[in-house]
């Protein structure tokens, strides 16, 4: 325990590690800008998340590092690969004349933010506004109120239970949205949408051709969907007459 208080002896290797990780992050991010193969971009995005997770450990955020390694480097890479498989393999090059505008915006925004860095508290300052009030109160009170060692879990589940409930509902609704867009068996919305909103229904989907039962239900569904607009059309003039 006395070792951890002696910060100066630990500082030099930590700074070297931090600078190494940062350099790696910058290299990976620039590589993502330059790459055109979508497979390489997706994998580099996973590498970026994993290096970020390593830096989170160095910044004392072990829970966040754990989550980033599991989610950012694991699940999101798998999802992006699956989507890439359904979409495309290569991205087309963007002509240089179309890159000046974004470059200008990004440079101006970055310069403005770097100017604002002078107003930020120093790195690791214990008395900065962010580290002074409520965060440190959580550490002081967790031992008495909740009596578990992991303060992050205590804040997550108890002090900020409403927040986490909201996040759970967000995840639930995101899952619901994906199921509505793609379908749990990958057969949702097998109709070809026209760009300005006309729908042309395809009664038989490739997935439906495999099993007969879903093939039988599809035309009924189509009829039902086609019937709905007619009904609403019939009801609106009535309302207008009255």
């Amino acid at each position: 325990m006395a070792v951890s208080l002696n910060a100066s002896s630990v500082a030099i290797p930590t700074i070297a590690l931090d600078i190494g990780l940062m350099a790696l992050l910058v290299v990976v991010a620039f590589a993502i800008v330059r790459m055109r193969s979508l497979f390489a971009i997706v994998m580099l995005q996973g590498v970026y998340s994993l290096v970020c997770a390593a830096w989170f450990v160095s910044l004392d955020a072990v829970d966040v590092a754990f989550t980033e390694a599991a989610v950012g480097a694991g699940v999101s890479t798998v999802l992006m690969l699956a989507a890439m498989l359904l979409a495309d393999r290569k991205s087309e090059p963007v002509p240089m004349k179309r890159q000046w505008g974004p470059l200008l915006i990004v440079l101006i925004a970055g310069a403005a933010m770097i100017l604002a860095v002078g107003d930020m508290p120093n790195y690791g300052a214990a008395n900065s506004p962010a580290n002074s009030y409520v965060g440190m109160d959580y550490i002081a009170r967790t031992a008495e109120d909740i009596d578990i060692p992991n303060v992050v879990t205590a804040v997550l589940a108890s002090y900020r239970g409403y927040d986490t409930f909201g996040e759970t509902v967000v995840i639930f609704s995101a899952g619901l949205g994906v199921l509505l867009l793609l379908g749990l068996n990958g057969n949702a919305g097998r109709w070809r949408a026209k760009p300005n909103g006309h729908r042309v229904f395809r009664p038989s989907a490739p997935a439906a051709a495999v099993s007969k039962t879903s093939d039988e239900t599809k035309p009924n569904e189509t009829k039902k969907r086609r019937g709905r607009p007619r009904k609403s059309k019939a009801s609106t003039p009535d309302g207008g007459d009255k």
């Binding site: 999802l79 699956a82 994906v178 793609l182 490739p206």
Partner: peptide
Amino acid sequence: VMIAIFYAFGSRQPET
């Protein structure tokens, strides 16, 4: 939810 998202992407037919 994670399994649902993976099932949805995985069982989608690649090309129509």
